[in-house]
Write a protein that binds this DNA or RNA. Structure first.
Length: 656
DNA sequence: ATAGGGTTAG
């Protein structure tokens, strides 16, 4: 069977992944298939059933499941090995339901599954996310006396750790195993880590070390991931050292995991060093560092991206998702549009994560219509699609649309989570929809059983405060089941300032400062309250106190993209290469504001006495938290004729 | 001849 050997070589030599299968490979496989089926047994060195099974496996490894199935159906007799190869083939190509169906056929034809078949079909159950099917297989394992096989036990553990609500079933299997191997340990550690419990994941890894179990690259990469999930760069560094000691510093998944850990722990220097020291890199390496920098330094992530293709790496969905987010956070619309073009050219626009990123990016760049267009064109939407669209509407002041979208989402059968409620409450707050907002706050607790967190309380305080219902807002804070943080008090103080409730504001600020003197934001708010009433003596006093405690609130920096160039500035900027143009645009904005009937707020005139600075203050610098990550809100101003977007960020990196 | 665990976007 020299033909089979050469075909196998050919198969191995073709690139895996999404590349199309060369016709020569298909033809070659087909020829082998014909020879096997047509030749009489004496002419074959081996049993045709064995050769067919080999071929099924080869087909599936190349993603040619349909061809494998045709061959499988043409086989005159199918033994356990052939059945198992077909189940595995389907599962490895993500056709889990078909894999399960083949298993059912196998039982119907009264072929007895072995431990190989069971562990394969359990993988299919995991892929189908069907715990009941998995439990059925577990029962069958008992009936067949295969429940003690290590492969079956490991597969069952994986199933329960991934799909069951608690880790209990997985742990029971783990504890009752006669013998454990490296896979058993890794499976359980991964179970904990993937559900966000890095502490137990790491604890288990420590136990693994204590019990002198075999440590391999698999256990290291997941243990490093556990360090990242608890945000401990100290544990991560120890793991890095240990991995080097074990000689895994050239293992790509291990190094990618370490790189990711440094990024997630905000150790960007170590991350860069790690990236540059890696002799061999793959696409995941690039995606990891690009995503890592996107979270903290979007400009740098774009810079790294630009080096990727010259070094021979082609970006994929993961890359583009990070790059799109970077464009959104920098509010550089033209760049975002170029990325959009690139993904359409590559035919990747059907990717849901990517579409979600575009909704977010266009909204942050001031193009809410483009966001909606993408949202409407999506064939499937997940929670994130709806949330991104609602946050976009909220930031643009379109509260009604956000509320309508929420109801539509619920009707489509998606259960809202805490973040969605934050999006809706914040949208209501900015659009002045107080009663609607309060209704959702109640609905959240009563109907959806979502417990409000700091940010949610912050939203509701803001909602009431903006509407002038400061007393109610204060009472809500008093009733909170935990200690209010800066965002909650900040919302209340903002309301005091906006409604010129100087006395209330002062007493609140003093109270906060007594218990938390380190909250710099409170000083700023207090000084603004004084400024609003023109009490300049007190204003100066508070500012002096701020300097006294030695901490400084970083000045918010704004930027705007005009004709492919980014101009940036801070409040009161007098220098900078293009500062005159910046003020020119600002004057234009104020003019549009006046034309649209918006009266500039004279309170904000703190540092200077001319209108331009006043407007700068009104454009404010705010960030809000969504899903744990800092979310940079773009300030969007729309008039009949033009739309402007100004991106806002809080670090001090100079841009222009 | 058939089986298992790890790394990247939101």
């Amino acid at each position: 069977m020299r033909g089979l050997m050469s075909a196998k070589k050919l198969l191995l030599s073709t690139a895996t992944g999404y590349n199309p299968i060369p016709q020569i490979v298909r033809n070659s496989l087909k020829r082998i298939q014909n020879r096997i089926l047509q030749s009489a047994p004496p002419f074959l060195a081996k049993d045709p059933s064995v050769l067919s099974t080999n071929l099924i496996k080869s087909y599936c490894e190349k993603g040619l499941v349909k061809e494998a199935r045709v061959l499988f159906d043409e086989m005159p007799k199918r033994d356990v090995v052939a059945w198992t190869a077909m189940i595995t083939g389907y599962a490895s190509c993500h056709h889990h339901i078909q894999g399960w169906a083949v298993f059912c056929d196998m039982l119907r034809e009264e072929d007895r599954p072995n431990e190989f078949s069971l562990s394969s079909v359990l993988k299919a159950c995991k892929g189908m996310k069907d715990l009941d099917c998995g439990r059925l297989v577990h029962c069958l394992a008992f009936k067949l006396g295969l429940e003690g096989s290590m492969y079956v036990e490991n597969a069952l553990m994986d199933l329960y750790a991934t799909l069951d609500l608690s880790m209990d079933d997985a742990c029971v299997i783990f504890c009752n195993m006669d013998k454990k191997n490296a896979v058993s340990w890794t499976t359980l550690i991964a179970g904990y880590t993937h559900r966000g419990d890095g502490y137990n994941g790491l604890a288990l890894f420590r136990q693994m070390v204590v019990e002198e179990a075999e440590l391999n690259p698999f256990s290291f990469s997941i243990a490093v991931r556990a360090c990242a999930s608890i945000g401990s760069h100290l544990c991560g560094q120890q793991m890095h050292a240990a991995a080097t000691k074990y000689g895994f510093q050239f293992n790509l998944p291990v190094m990618n995991s370490i790189l990711d850990m440094y990024c997630r722990c905000s150790c960007l220097f170590e991350a860069s060093k790690c990236f540059h020291d890696m002799g061999e890199k793959d696409l995941i390496t690039w995606n990891t560092i690009i995503a890592g920098f996107e979270r903290t330094d979007a400009r740098e992530s774009l810079h790294i991206f630009s080096q990727m293709e010259p070094q021979g790496f082609s970006p994929n969905c993961f890359t583009f998702t990070s790059i799109t987010a970077a464009c959104g956070n920098l509010a550089i619309l033209t760049c975002g549009q170029q990325v959009h073009g690139a993904i359409i050219r590559r035919g990747l626009e059907g990717n849901m994560a990517l579409a979600n990123a575009f909704i977010d990016m266009y909204a942050k760049c001031g193009s809410i219509r483009a966001s909606r267009k993408i949202f409407n064109a999506m064939s499937h939407r997940d929670l994130l699609s709806w949330t991104s669209m609602m946050i976009g509407y909220g930031a643009h002041g379109h509260g009604r649309e956000a509320v309508e979208l929420f109801d539509e989402m619920v009707r489509s059968g998606i259960r809202p989570d805490r973040i969605v409620f934050m999006a809706v409450l914040s949208a209501c707050s900015h659009a002045g929809l107080v009663e609607e907002g309060l209704r959702y706050f109640e609905l959240m607790k009563r109907k959806y059983n979502v417990t409000p967190c700091q940010e949610i309380y912050g939203c509701v305080v803001d909602l009431l405060g903006r509407a002038g219902r400061v007393e109610e807002a204060y009472q809500l804070i008093e009733k909170m089941p935990f200690r209010p943080d800066e965002s909650v008090w900040g919302a209340l103080l903002g309301a005091c300032r906006a409604h010129k409730l100087q006395k209330v504001g002062m007493s609140v600020a003093r109270r906060v400062l007594d218990s938390r003197p380190s909250m710099v934001g409170t000083y700023v708010m207090l000084s603004n309250i004084y400024a609003a009433d023109g009490i300049w003596g007190e204003f100066a006093e508070v500012r002096k106190m701020m300097r006294g405690i030695g901490s400084k609130k970083e000045a918010g920096r704004s930027w705007i993209e005009v004709k492919n160039q980014v101009f940036s500035f801070v409040v009161g900027d007098k220098m900078g290469p293009h500062i005159e143009q910046v003020y020119g645009v600002l004057d234009l904005l104020i003019q549009h504001m006046r034309e649209s009937g918006y009266v500039p707020d004279s309170d904000a005139m703190i540092h200077e006495k001319d209108g331009t600075i006043k407007a700068l203050c009104r454009f404010g610098h705010s960030t809000s938290k969504t899903s744990g990550a800092e979310y940079h809100k773009g300030m969007i101003f729309t008039s009949k004729r033009k739309r402007y977007a100004i991106g806002i960020y809080e670090s001090g990196t100079p841009q222009s």
